[in-house]
Computed example of a mutant assay.
Amino acid sequence: MGLRFRKSIRICKGMKLNFGKTGVGVSFGTRGLHYTVHSSGRRTASVGIPGTGISYVSSSGGGRSKRRRVGAGVKAQRAIQVQQQKEEEYSRNCEMVDDFNELLDMIRSIHEECSETIDWISLKNKPEPFNNMLPGPREEEALRSLHDAKPGFIGKLIPATHNNKIKKLNDAVLAAREEDKQVYDDWENMKKLATQVLSGEIDSYFYVVSEMHPFDEILDYGSDFNIGTDIPNILEVEFHAKTDKVVPNHVLEITKTGKLSSKKMTKTMHYDIAQDYICSCVLRTAREVFALLPIESVVIHVVDKVQPIIGDEYDDTVLSVLIDRKRFEQISFSGIDASDTIEMFKCNMNFKKTGGLKPVKRVEF
């Protein structure tokens, strides 16, 4: 807003021609209220005081047009930056949701991976690496190097250098002999262990499990394992599922505006994922046991926290299953529903959609 004086010539009713130092303009309007278009491009709306030639005006365009065009460019650039930031934020949010969904898929498909099967029969029948009554292959090679060692020009000139070389070659023979002995001992011990395992010696089962750590990958999800048995060809496994540490209690989603939303997971969904997780761990455990040991059956008990209607939560058996190798090896584990697959076997499992897994008795075997 401002004050100014001006001269004007009336062209017709409601229209005037205005003269100024910077150009000519045309005004439209009635007494006391005008709208002016100047030759410079400036547009002016004015409210006049009748009889004085004085008016309050508000202008746009004209001399300010160039500055406003620059301002518009800055605004456009800022708008692009804001849009880019929104797109980057949306991309990050989508990535977080994808990672979250991948986690859910992972804890429901633990059974799809497994260690390589140990062929105990081949290990038992593997021939000895060499005749133990004769030098081994490494020692033989070291002996040849020692035998072929002849003093060169320097050795003849300085006998001590040749003697030092001979000493090193003799040491190499002794080291090679120890390496051959280790290879032979390893073969002998593996053959003995394979014989014990195939004959059903229970102590050999425990030794193999302690050495091979078959459940390490499952432990990454938070489960604790105990094994035991009194019966050859059957191994009993107990593990604590710890679903409260593994299964999330929220879900991540993208809103319509592209924002990341974290909502509390419904109990029904949580219970369903927890059941699949536990059953997937059972199948993976059975796969690892059968890959490791030539036994006929494995009994698996799952312990997890149970929330009673009244009182504090406590640990109890929520799943117990007897899995036989013959039927188990007929399963194609890719893409199966772990919870449905478990029910193919002798199984005690009490699952409620609105209450989750409930305590059960352990299967008898």
Rank of each mutant, 00 (worst) to 15 (best):
residue 76 A to N: 08
residue 76 A to M: 07
residue 77 Q to T: 10
residue 77 Q to Y: 08
residue 77 Q to L: 13
residue 77 Q to E: 12
residue 78 R to D: 00
residue 78 R to F: 00
residue 78 R to S: 00
residue 79 A to W: 07
residue 79 A to R: 13
residue 81 Q to W: 15
residue 81 Q to F: 15
residue 81 Q to A: 15
residue 81 Q to H: 13
residue 82 V to A: 12
residue 82 V to E: 13
residue 82 V to D: 12
residue 82 V to T: 12
residue 82 V to N: 13
residue 82 V to C: 05
residue 82 V to L: 11
residue 82 V to W: 01
residue 83 Q to L: 10
residue 83 Q to R: 13
residue 83 Q to V: 01
residue 83 Q to F: 05
residue 84 Q to P: 03
residue 84 Q to V: 11
residue 84 Q to R: 14
residue 84 Q to W: 11
residue 85 Q to I: 08
residue 86 K to T: 05
residue 86 K to V: 02
residue 86 K to P: 01
residue 86 K to C: 01
residue 87 E to I: 06
residue 87 E to G: 01
residue 87 E to N: 09
residue 87 E to D: 09
residue 87 E to K: 08
residue 88 E to A: 15
residue 88 E to W: 07
residue 88 E to Q: 15
residue 88 E to P: 13
residue 88 E to S: 14
residue 88 E to Y: 13
residue 89 E to N: 10
residue 89 E to T: 06
residue 89 E to C: 07
residue 89 E to D: 06
residue 89 E to H: 07
residue 90 Y to H: 09
residue 91 S to L: 10
residue 92 R to H: 08
residue 92 R to Y: 09
residue 92 R to Q: 11
residue 92 R to C: 00
residue 93 N to I: 03
residue 93 N to H: 09
residue 94 C to P: 01
residue 94 C to I: 11
residue 95 E to C: 10
residue 95 E to A: 14
residue 95 E to Q: 15
residue 95 E to R: 14
residue 96 M to H: 09
residue 96 M to G: 05
residue 96 M to N: 14
residue 96 M to L: 15
residue 97 V to S: 06
residue 97 V to H: 04
residue 97 V to E: 06
residue 98 D to E: 15
residue 98 D to S: 15
residue 98 D to A: 14
residue 98 D to H: 13
residue 98 D to M: 12
residue 98 D to L: 13
residue 100 F to W: 14
residue 100 F to Q: 13
residue 100 F to A: 09
residue 101 N to D: 09
residue 101 N to T: 04
residue 101 N to W: 02
residue 102 E to H: 05
residue 102 E to N: 11
residue 102 E to I: 01
residue 103 L to C: 11
residue 103 L to V: 08
residue 103 L to I: 12
residue 103 L to H: 13
residue 105 D to T: 08
residue 105 D to N: 10
residue 105 D to R: 15
residue 105 D to H: 11
residue 106 M to F: 08
residue 107 I to H: 01
residue 107 I to P: 03
residue 107 I to Y: 01
residue 107 I to C: 03
residue 108 R to S: 14
residue 109 S to N: 10
residue 109 S to I: 00
residue 110 I to M: 07
residue 110 I to K: 01
residue 111 H to V: 00
residue 111 H to F: 00
residue 111 H to S: 05
residue 111 H to C: 09
residue 112 E to W: 01
residue 112 E to F: 02
residue 113 E to N: 14
residue 113 E to C: 07
residue 113 E to M: 12
residue 114 C to I: 02
residue 115 S to L: 09
residue 115 S to P: 00
residue 115 S to E: 07
residue 115 S to Q: 05
residue 115 S to V: 02
residue 116 E to P: 02
residue 116 E to S: 10
residue 116 E to G: 04
residue 117 T to D: 09
residue 117 T to C: 09
residue 117 T to L: 11
residue 117 T to H: 01
residue 117 T to M: 11
residue 117 T to E: 15
residue 118 I to W: 04
residue 118 I to Q: 12
residue 118 I to V: 15
residue 119 D to K: 01
residue 119 D to S: 00
residue 119 D to A: 00
residue 120 W to F: 03
residue 120 W to L: 09
residue 121 I to H: 03
residue 122 S to W: 00
residue 122 S to M: 06
residue 122 S to C: 03
